[in-house]
Design a protein around this nucleic acid. Structure first.
Lengths: 117, 117
DNA sequence: CTGGATCCTCTGCGATACTG
DNA sequence: CAGTATCGCAGAGGATCCAG
């Protein structure tokens, strides 16, 4: 069923591969999460909430799940008390670095400058 | 008021410039529209609706407006009857080519292949 | 031909309380 | 500590009719 959903999702937007990527890394917080993981390599759930003060727990939780099921990041849970869970990027996630960098650079060159002028 | 909204939008996501760009080119159809304009250079409203069969008129209309107000594309209306309106990318819009290409390539390498296997 | 006006649905996002 | 459960809101996306 999930498989179907993905395939459907892929074909619905005029077979445009760009939309596929935007669906995966898009949204309000996912880019930020990926960006943080690119910098910090490994982060715990609580650390992310501190690094992204505005995010709601539920949203972070769901974002991480989706990124995991898309193969972008890897979730490692340690059977301890209290529990510890570490998130890090997969190879696929690392391969987004170029894109994330470009997105960042573009906005700095094309949006931020404007606002200062 | 619009200015306030933009500035607020920029600062809300932990000052992350990536989100800014995603906000501009994100959404279900905007990437497709930009991609089409990169290829075709100039398109009329009706032509876009034909190239993107699934899109609702209102959505296309709003997407074009937003892209225009973000300075991505240029709207040229000809005072004729029946009216003719042409859309083309601004220099700022053209500068997105690199990003669009990367997004496309990434999905082809990381998503499509998987589905075929 | 271009798109505004209207009404509707669906889901992404958010805040708080609670649990293994 | 790392989440789930629950409730709620606002906006994106959509279908249809109407107008300059």
């Amino acid at each position: 069923m999930e498989e179907e959903k993905k395939i459907k999702k892929y074909y619905q937007a005029t077979d445009c591969p760009i939309t596929v990527t935007v669906d995966i890394i898009g949204g309000k917080w996912k880019p930020v999460i990926i960006w943080l993981l690119l910098k910090e390599k490994t982060l715990r759930f609580g650390e992310i909430t501190k690094l992204i003060p505005g995010i709601a727990l539920k949203v972070l939780s769901r974002s991480l799940k989706e990124l995991e099921s898309d193969g972008i990041l890897i979730r490692k849970a340690y059977p301890e008390v209290p529990p510890r869970v570490e998130y890090s990027l997969s190879a696929k996630g690392e391969s987004l670095k170029q894109i994330i960098d470009l997105l960042s650079i573009w906005s700095i060159e094309n949006v931020v400058v404007e606002q200062q002028v």
